[in-house]
C-alpha cells in the first residue's frame, strides 16, 4: 500500500499561474524518491504541501491512511511528528548545543507544558545520543551549533528529524550548500536511513546526477507539473531536457554516466 498519495494537488499562491497544477503520484513505504526540476518549478512548494506547511488550493493528500489535507489542528500536529524535514540551510538554533537541537525533534510528542519546560525523559536523551553517535557527531554533542561546519550542521538536522521516529523524511535540497565531500557523506547517510531503517524519503535535488545515483525513483517537475515519474534507468536525455527546459540541452550529461560514479 502507498504510504503517501497525492491526488490532483493544485496550489495557487496569489496569481493566475499555479505553482503546482494537478500533481498526482504515490510513494510506497521505504522508497527513496528524488524530485528534480529547474528553479521555480515548485519543488519546495510540493514538499511543504505534504506536511501542510503550505495549504493546498485543491486536490487531496493521503498519508499513512489519513487524509492529510483535511486534518484539524491537533491531528495535524500528530501528522507532523511522523514526518521529519531537512533543509538546505539546516535551520538549527545556532546558539544552542547539538544535543538541545536534536531534542527539539521530540517537542511534537509532548504536552505544551512539558515542552515549554523542556522535560525530556532519560529514554529520549539516550535515543538522541544514539542517533548523534550514528551520524558521527559524538565529539560535538555539547558544542554550540554555530561552531559546526555545514556538513556537521546538516547531520544535526538529520538527527533532529530521526529523533522524531518518523515514517517519512522530506529533504529540501539537503546538499545545495555543501561541497562534494560533505554532500557525499550526507547522501550516504540518507541512503542508510532509507535502507536500514526503512524510512521513506522524498528529496528535492538540484544535481540530477546525484538523484540518478541514489534514488529508487525520480519525479521530474517543470512549471508545477509532473513531467516524469519513473525509475532512474528510464530517464532519457530527451526527458531530462523536458524537465529542465530545452535551452539547457548542452548542459546535460549523458544518463549513461550514472553507472560510472
Amino acid at each position: 500500500m502507498a504510504l503517501l498519495e497525492l491526488k490532483n494537488v493544485t496550489k495557487y499562491y496569489n496569481n493566475a499561474t499555479p505553482a503546482l497544477s494537478e500533481v498526482s503520484f504515490e510513494v510506497r513505504e521505504g522508497e527513496f524518491v528524488s524530485v528534480i526540476g529547474p528553479s521555480g518549478a515548485g519543488k519546495s512548494t510540493l514538499l511543504r504541501c505534504i506536511n501542510r506547511m503550505i495549504e493546498v488550493s485543491g486536490g487531496e493528500i493521503y498519508f499513512d491512511g489519513v487524509i492529510a489535507s483535511k486534518l484539524r489542528k491537533r491531528d495535524l500536529r500528530k501528522l507532523r511528528t511522523k514526518i521529519g524535514m531537512i533543509f538546505q540551510h539546516y535551520n538549527l538554533v545556532d546558539r544552542l548545543t547539538v544535543l538541545e537541537n536534536v531534542l527539539h525533534g521530540r517537542l511534537g510528542y509532548k504536552s505544551t507544558l512539558a515542552g515549554v519546560l523542556g522535560r525530556y525523559s532519560e529514554e529520549e536523551k539516550k535515543q538522541a545520543l544514539e542517533i548523534i553517535k550514528l551520524l558521527g557527531l559524538t565529539d560535538q554533542v555539547y558544542k554550540r551549533c554555530d561552531q559546526l561546519s555545514g556538513g556537521q550542521k546538516q547531520r544535526v538536522g538529520i538527527a533532529r528529524a530521526l529523533v522524531q521516529n518518523p515514517k517519512m523524511i522530506l529533504c529540501d535540497e539537503p546538499i545545495a550548500s555543501l561541497d562534494p565531500n560533505a554532500s557525499k557523506i550526507i547522501m550516504d547517510h540518507l541512503r542508510n536511513i532509507s535502507r536500514e531503517m526503512g524510512i521513506t524519503l522524498v528529496v528535492n535535488l538540484h544535481q540530477f546526477n546525484v538523484a540518478l545515483k541514489y534514488s529508487d525513483r525520480i519525479i521530474g517537475v517543470n512549471k508545477g507539473m509532473v513531467v516524469f515519474d519513473g525509475a532512474p534507468e528510464d530517464l532519457s536525455a530527451e526527458q531530462i531536457s523536458d524537465i529542465y527546459g530545452s535551452e539547457s540541452g548542452d548542459l546535460i550529461i549523458e544518463p549513461g554516466e550514472k553507472n560510472a560514479s
Partner: peptide, 10 residues
C-alpha cells in the same frame, strides 16, 4: 523547521 516537526507556538 520546529513547526514542521510538530512543536507548537509556546
Amino acid at each position: 523547521a520546529l513547526t514542521a516537526s510538530g512543536a507548537n507556538w509556546w
